[in-house]
Design a protein around this nucleic acid. Structure first.
Ligand SMILES: [Zn+2]
Ligand SMILES: [Zn+2]
Ligand SMILES: [Zn+2]
Ligand SMILES: [Zn+2]
Lengths: 168, 168
DNA sequence: TGGCGAACGTTATAACATATCATTTGAACC
DNA sequence: GGTTCAAATGATATGTTATAACGTTCGCCA
């Protein structure tokens, strides 16, 4: 079947819409996927673009809603969870454990553990890149013969602007 | 109604069963609650005792099952979540964000943030108390004008014994 | 012994995540 | 071009974690 091109489903698939994605991020995504020997499909890229377009971390189900709105079709949770697994696996996205949400990495040039300051008032997530923190975490593990695979650091509290506006 | 003592419900309530709780832990619990000006009820103590008796971190629903087995009656999720909120609030219990589970603090004499090494193979949770780690986390927040309220540090990987038995 | 706030119970539902199995896709090879 | 195979996706169902809403009981204190 289907000698002809463009069945309806082909059209639907090939026209996955997504927020505009700056060339910089697309290049990075391609580079990370090539490095990891993984495929960067349109659906995966669309999920990534949606996260990049969001001002805040989004939950998996918020991402589903965003993509359904954009694409005007139903998307199963599993689909989005698979995209998120993929994006975190290749290092383009971090998961925030304490808020069950996801956001694009601020500097995905190199793989690293996630370290965040999370404002409980405005929801802002500030990615930290602290070598000293990294090394002390490694030291702690090392001293105990522990082999780290993945480390979560999430400092929750009030960001500078919320702290100043709230106090007094 | 109820002029007499001991209705059935009184009996049920007053005979909440729980794992045996060493005097040391009971004293600590009482001290922490007094300090926080909170009530240490039988149900809360029973939940704490169950966590202490467990060899591993347990999820809220595992705790429900444990308590239902012990007490031979239905317990609603909300009830146990309230006990867990209480226990974490007074500093007797920590929540592991990355595994959605709970475990008693190893040194609840003083309040502190949770810092753990979590073995993904055997499930063991090793509580760390690192002042240097604490101070660098504070410094990171400080430099950015961030007011920390609560910090999550969870190093996931292989514990010493799992690492040696797995490798090679 | 009445008032009051904390704790608890009951029911329902929201939010987060995965299992299973069928189908489609796309690159590799012939 | 056609075959093959693994990866990705889709569809449906279910499992797990967490909270909302509201009424009742408990324990302290005036
Ligand atoms: Zn990052
Ligand atoms: Zn803020
Ligand atoms: Zn502790
Ligand atoms: Zn282990």
């Amino acid at each position: 079947m289907g000698k002809s091109a463009t069945k309806d489903s082909d059209v639907a698939r090939s026209t996955i819409t997504a927020p505009k994605l700056a060339a910089k991020w697309r290049k990075l995504a391609e580079a990370r996927c090539a490095a990891a020997n993984e495929r960067l499909t349109p659906a995966r890229l669309a999920a990534y673009a949606e996260l990049l377009a969001s001002k805040r971390p989004v939950s998996a189900y918020e991402l589903i809603a965003l993509m359904e709105d954009r694409q005007q079709r139903k998307i199963a949770p599993l689909t989005v969870y698979r995209h998120l697994d993929f994006l975190t696996r290749v290092g383009l996205v971090h998961r925030l454990e304490s808020t069950h949400s996801y956001l694009p990495c601020d500097h995905p040039e190199h793989a690293h553990e996630s370290q965040y300051l999370l404002c409980s008032s405005c929801g802002h997530a500030d990615e930290v890149e602290s070598k000293p923190l990294e090394s002390i975490l490694n030291k702690i593990a090392d001293q105990r013969g522990f082999q780290p695979e993945n480390t979560v650091v999430e400092i929750k509290g009030l960001c500078a602007s919320c702290a100043t506006s709230d106090s007094d």
